[in-house]
Amino acid sequence: MDFDTDPTSLYSVKGIVILDQDGNRIIAKYFDKSVFGSVKEQKAFEKNLFSKTSRNSTSDIVLLDGVTCLYRSNVDLHFYVLGSSRENELILEALLTCLYDAISTVLRKQVEKKTLIDAMDTAMLIIDEICDEGIILETDSQAVVQRCNLKGDDISFSDQTFSQVGQTFIGAAREQLKWSLLK
């Protein structure tokens, strides 16, 4: 897989990483094995990356060791897309936006460490759906959420609060009651 030299190679995403507020790894998926071959190299890079980006504003871009890193943070989470330095930065940005928006939709806009951990399985599916072995698969967050078969009403029960579930059921029951009374 040619991540750096061939300009016509589609392999351009070296990794997708989500870190918490202390720089600890929550999800990290690396595609370029020549740069991020071992976990040791990956962690060293994450540490360096976190120290360079954590103090800064909410969304930005930095070039680190020849890797273009786009990042975005919210509350206690930091989202990173690591791309080849030859890749169009705006394409990488589109990927980051897609990642963030898809996760935000699934977490119902509550993008926090706790909610993300509860929906870890879905988050992994989302990453699998937007990038395949380093090739960008999809950049439309709506399509990603839909493909993971996670349309709003389909989200598993455990992700909804008890009252929410209760309300839908009570609402449904009330409708039914109304109809039966009308008959």
Partner: peptide
């Protein structure tokens, strides 16, 4: 206003 675009341009 987009940092990514400014970055790309100046690079």
């Amino acid at each position: 206003p987009k940092p990514a675009l400014r970055f790309a341009a100046v690079r």
